[in-house]
Design a protein around this nucleic acid. Structure first.
Lengths: 232, 232
DNA sequence: GAGATTTTTAAGCATGGACATAATAATTTG
DNA sequence: CAAATTATTATGTCCATGCTTAAAAATCTC
């Protein structure tokens, strides 16, 4: 054939057919073998292309069932949420960190819900502020399981942020992320140097280590914060 | 033991080392050949694992340069944004749609900025409300390029939502997504049946077809809306 | 010594064959 | 006839091998 077919070009061609509606949602595509013949390549190459398309939600693959065009086109978007310090430094600003409060308390009902727990055990409750160039950037309200992460009780959180300590010392296996908007409470407004009632962007993250709860954090961003991504 | 395939377990093991800081950002990893030896598998298998890690930003690969741990560890999260009707139906609620206004106007400066345009051409401006079980769900404020999508002018938008028509008839090649929080304006508050000043969650999407602008939509969600995803 | 050229290295890709696995279809059995 | 068993099919994964390609390193040239 003309050019050596690469798995990426097969991927792009199938994607084009889907986007150009040459095949419709729900339609069955030829099987890998047949596509390999059409493109004049090995089945492995088609397999690699289809694996990618399945991962991005363009097609659905089922053993024996074959490959079908996804029934409901979705916009699949990928966001990278970095460690707050690195995010600030990437903006070229000085990073600052400030512990607001810490203590052992019975977790809130909403935190229990995030963990999927029926009861409300005691956990370490940490509130801290991240600064970018001396301006408040993100206020975090965090619960840390003292049962899963007992070492956290020995960490001096006035110096080191729980955000960073946990990522360094307690890698998670699962993570649930939630985005929402909320009005600033008077306390949040004061810390973020804005008005009570201002609309704030909230990123809530809950992490587990093999189904054992690690932490639940509400990262409340200062006004103006935006999260951007390009979908492909 | 895990029943997972070996390339995924190699991927997970390398990821673990990165997250557990056994290798630090910027560190060079052994080359594929050496890793294959360590894991007792073929280089192809390591290649597949590393390809994935490179795609998700954990690692950076350069020919000849080898593989290095990405400078900034991130939580990479994937969201699927479906057609609004399907989202509502998936909640088990009745979907409703209501056109608020439409007309040809010069686009707003912020819309022009989203498209990356210097000037502010005229586009079709559509405002519509999506309902879930007779309650307002999402209010969308949309600009559609009459140049790229002239057929849109013939569509009866009182019956069919632009959201759906575009996704089904004008697939995009590029999409930029932005999440933010904003206070409800009086008009938005009225449509969403809430108070002016309420904190609202906004999803802004701009799409192109091969660098030709298609649409820019601000989807403003009713209070309480949350976007959830599991990161891996 | 600066600039151009060659060498070497490590990732990138393709192949064909083999076996595993899940889901469906066909067949047997009580 | 329904339930259990077996066969079939398409995807999933792995491997050994060989070639391609980008980029760094070494070498050569003026």
């Amino acid at each position: 054939m003309s050019t050596r077919s690469s798995w990426t070009s097969i991927r792009d061609e199938i994607k084009r057919r889907v986007q150009a509606r040459e095949v419709l949602p729900g339609d069955k595509l030829p099987n890998d073998q047949e596509l390999a013949q059409e493109f004049g390549c090995a089945r492995t190459t088609v397999q690699r292309a289809m694996q990618e398309l399945a991962a991005t939600g363009t097609v659905v693959r089922r053993r024996k069932g074959g490959t079908t065009v996804a029934a409901h086109p979705v916009t699949r978007t990928t966001f990278d949420i970095p460690i707050t310090r690195l995010e600030v430094e990437a903006l070229g600003q000085d990073y600052g960190y400030f512990l607001v409060s810490q203590g052992i308390e019975q977790i809130s009902r909403s935190a229990a819900a995030s963990f999927g727990l029926q009861d409300q055990p005691e956990m370490l409750h940490v509130r801290a502020l991240h600064l970018a160039g001396n301006r408040p950037y993100i206020y975090e309200d965090r619960w840390i399981s003292q049962e899963t992460v007992p070492e956290i009780l020995d960490v001096d959180l006035t110096r080191e942020s729980a955000n960073e300590w946990l990522i360094l010392n307690r890698p998670y296996s699962d993570c649930e992320v939630r985005f929402l908007a909320k009005k600033a409470t008077p306390q949040e407004a004061e810390l973020l140097e804005t008005e009570a009632g201002e609309a704030l962007f909230v990123m809530e993250r809950t992490t587990w280590s093999d189904s054992a709860p690690i932490t639940r954090v509400r990262a409340i961003a200062a006004p103006g914060y935006q999260l951007t991504a390009r979908a492909k």
